[in-house]
Amino acid sequence: MTQKPRRYLQGILWIVLYLALTLAPLFLLLVGPAPSGRGFWREFSVAIGFAGLAMMCLQFVLTARFRWLKAPYGSDIVYFFHRQVSLVAFVIVLAHPLILFIEDPARLGLLNVFAAPWRARFGVTSVLALIVLIASSLWRKPLKIHYDAWRIGHGLLATAAVALAMGHIVLVGHHVGTPAKRALWIGYGIFWVGLLAYVRVIKPWLEMRRPYVVESVTPERGNAWTLVLRPDGHSGLTFHPGQFAWLTLRSSPFADREHPFSFSSSAAQPQRLGFTIRELGDFTRKIGQVRPGERAYLDGPHGGFTTDRHEHAARFVFIAGGVGITPIMSILRTLADRGDRRPLLLVYASRDWEGVTFREEIEQLRASSRLDLCVVYVLERPPADWDGERGFVTADILRRHLSNFEPPSAFEVFICGPQPMMDAVERALLGLGVDVGDIHTERFDLV
């Protein structure tokens, strides 16, 4: 089986498994001996409460950075699903008490956590934690919550919401009376605690044992910095060009202050790992202050945004916007080091000519015999004498330059850049007849 059908199959398998694990509590409620019915709406509310909790537990799996789980879709899509399905879980969890309140308004008294029984206190606090969790994620930037604080809070609130909901189920005691049902919920609990221990304790501990040292910090065009790391006392890591790693600087891996960045260096030279970072957010603004000799930790490589997964592709098209050039630069450097002469087209959008990160090196690669590279710059604010493409990457621009790459099925496209640009380019490519399976994206800015 070639790589693509195998990935599709794997992708479908994970979706089926996700559905099975989410719906398992409902099936168990249906098949096992159950207490006698207490009215349709009450039982309906109970059922969605159980399913909502199963969904909340599975959220931890989605963000546990299992490479085998993310391989078929790409990391960004798994995070995006985590975000979307959390909203669905939130609605379902919220509907659980709302239905009970509508059915019998006297139950509203349970909201008074000072007078309510413990089972209600657990339930109410769990929902409150969930409300804060969702609100702080959806509106992190307007609420001006620092990314590091948000990440730590996100983990703590999620843990609290699930633990409190488990307590609520045990204290209510309904539908957990049989050994099979108890075993299922204990199993869910153990699985979840084990996962948490793996992500928060074992993984950081493994990272601590494999530190890196900052070798150099170099300014680049476009308000960016390139950070080069080398392994300190171990063999380092190997990666595929286009992948990313979680980087911890000036902090311990246990502090949960890591940030995802694409490798920008060649995968053929893994002893010097380069990351090119634009000054955009809380953390990235301080990159220029990092000094050679400082210690760093890496969790990676991650991500499926790589040409290495498409060995049989005849050509590649890269569409980069701003600092989205970093994973693509890693791919170009790697292909050049490997002497890969497959035809490549790079469409590179930037605000202005002076801010085109890696401009000189891209020009060198274009002129060299190591690559068969064609480059199209698209400038938002071009200089007066500019005779290249201007504005944004549109369907027209793509049609003009992709004409050498006919038919559309003959190439794989990699897009990385700001969210609106990626959406527009993806739509344009689909309109030009490019297969959705041949379009690969990397999106980071989800929170």
Binding site: I15, Y18, L19, T22, L23, L26, F27, L29, L30, A34, S36, G37, R38, G39, F40, W41, R42, E43, F44, A47, I48, A51, G52, M55, Y73, G74, I77, F80, F81, Q84, V85, L87, V88, V91, I92, E426, L430, V436, I439, T441, R443
Partner: peptide, 30 residues
């Protein structure tokens, strides 16, 4: 496109849960 598919999957999971929950509630009371 992939984002739309994953949104559709998330909504699909929600609908499935609601349908199965209704089935459960119905069977419990009959």
């Amino acid at each position: 496109m992939r984002q739309r598919l994953s949104t559709a999957l998330a909504i699909g999971v929600g609908i499935l849960i609601l349908v199965l929950s209704a089935l459960f509630a119905f069977l419990q009371n009959h």
